[in-house]
Design a protein around this nucleic acid. Structure first.
Lengths: 294, 294
DNA sequence: CGTTCGGTTGAATGTTATCAATCGCGGTGG
DNA sequence: CCACCGCGATTGATAACATTCAACCGAACG
């Protein structure tokens, strides 16, 4: 049930200066070429004519470190080679809003292009290996390489669509549906990068989940517990096991709380009646039928 | 108090086929050159070397007509020359979410770049004059013209940032703050395109406002009424007059409903005591002080 | 002149935030 | 080694809030 990712504690080094290229003790500094980068980004890569002498630097970050901060001059895009991060926007009132959780293969830093300053900050949630992509260099390559240019426009457009989906989620889905969708999305992304899509550890806290989904940490926690009760998932602290991903995909809202309470009372009564019997491990199909999928 | 924009009824011609270039009776078909386009988009325009033979076609739409629909093959970007529209995303459950209200100078259709199909649809809220920008042509021009290329990346990045702001708004602001921000944003955009920022008509219905802000139409209506009560704005149907834009800018939440009710009772009592007196036209400063700006 | 649509408002209901208490784990320091 | 934090997570009780259902009004349109 446990999973590949090992998370450093978030308590270490709250906010060290960013971009310290050769900082760590053993800096397994690596360089990636264009081919690696295209593979990571899932760009057709195709035939790069003689551009293979282009190299891009890797940098390591520990949990809690910032890759870039809001307002910092923009010159780089970043690609995650491994590890987990959060991208956070801070509005004029100081409200923090998590915009995404970049992981392997994800590009971030795009928001800096317009004003030449990053408008968000990126923070490592675990140990991370990040590839630096100087934007000017990348754009120049695109000018002579139509495939790359198209890919770059496509990546920006894709990010735009992702955010539109985020807006739609926040604007029109119930909390349950948002949490369900969040789990499905994580599952699919883990699968895509070679981890298990059924059993994984959450790289983020309940507070971060809640912030991302536009609710409080308590509501996020309760919703996960509710899914657990219904047998859709098993959750224990950070570890998740997904039992019924289809239910999560189609879930729109949980049965009204009154019905849920009655359901629980029934369960409690049944448990009391047969007190010496097995604990119900896998929840009944009947309970799952309670899901409204209107 | 009424304003320049005149709105056609939304009832006319629900969904006629899009892109009928020479449809209307008097087709005031115009062509724009690169210079006009750059002015509209607020691109430095600068010195376009001999590219001034590039021309872009205008098309007119009436209220209710679609400019493009979700799933339609992508080949164009669109720039609003005049009129008001809404951009709507429809998710897999059929939920509609309004993503933006494009108006003069705004670019839309960017979401089609990635998958070569539009993922959203754009609908005219009033009579509109739209400029067609073939994306391939624009990208090709960018390849030989660094200023234009930078501008195009910048526009996409700007749109990304706008949507991030939208996410932050939906995720972390109260309903009151969202409506306030919506009004401020409209005001600033109207000012930017030469209309009054204090007195204007809303181009959209309460339902559309509510949808955009992630609440029901009733809540949107009530919130506008509350602002009216507090004297921040005057609202009557579609017409808006902004009395205190600073209050709207800094507003985070209204006083708790109990305090508001007591306030109203006080007002009612005062009105009853001096029943034959003037109706209180401009609300008291005391009432406005009730705004929590923590 | 009736019908439809957009808008407003009230009352009841359901949902979420807030406040608070508890638990368990991992680290630190005595 | 163990006691003692501090933090993340869970859960309960209450208050605040938004939605829903419903009624009503007025303007636009056929």
């Amino acid at each position: 049930m446990s999973v590949a990712q090992t998370l450093d504690s978030n308590t270490a080094t709250p906010t060290p200066p960013a971009r310290s290229a050769g900082s760590g003790s053993r800096t397994h500094k690596i360089w990636s070429n264009m081919h690696d980068v295209c593979n990571l980004l899932r760009i057709p890569s195709g035939t790069f004519v003689g551009d293979d002498d282009q190299h891009f630097q890797h940098v390591q970050f520990k949990a809690g470190q910032r890759i870039h901060t809001a307002g910092q001059p923009f010159d780089m895009l970043y690609i995650v080679n491994c590890g987990f991060l959060k991208s956070v926007m801070i509005d004029e009132f100081g409200n923090e809003q998590i915009l995404s959780f970049p992981m392997k293969g994800d590009l971030f830093g795009i928001d800096g292009i317009h004003t030449k300053k990053y408008t968000s900050e990126a923070v490592a949630l675990s140990s991370c290996d990040i590839i630096l992509i100087p934007f000017a260099k990348f754009a120049a390559l695109g000018r002579t390489n139509p495939v790359l240019e198209t890919a770059l426009y496509g990546l920006m457009s894709r990010e735009l669509i992702r955010e539109q989906g985020m807006i739609t989620m926040l604007g029109s889905l119930t909390v349950e549906a948002r949490v369900a969708r969040f789990l499905v999305s994580l599952s699919e992304r883990f699968s895509a990068i070679g981890y298990s899509g059924k059993a994984f550890n959450l790289p983020m806290t309940r507070r971060e989940i809640g912030n991302y989904l536009g609710v409080t940490l308590e509501t996020a926690s309760r919703t996960l517990s509710a899914f657990n009760e219904l047998g859709l998932i098993s959750v224990d602290q950070r570890s998740i096991y997904i039992h019924d991903i289809n239910a999560l995909k189609t879930l729109r809202r949980l049965p009204p709380s009154r019905a849920r309470i009655e359901q629980q009372e029934k369960k409690a009564a049944a448990a009391a009646a047969s007190s010496s019997e097995f604990i119900q491990v896998a929840p009944s199909a009947a309970m799952r039928e309670q899901l409204a999928v209107v």
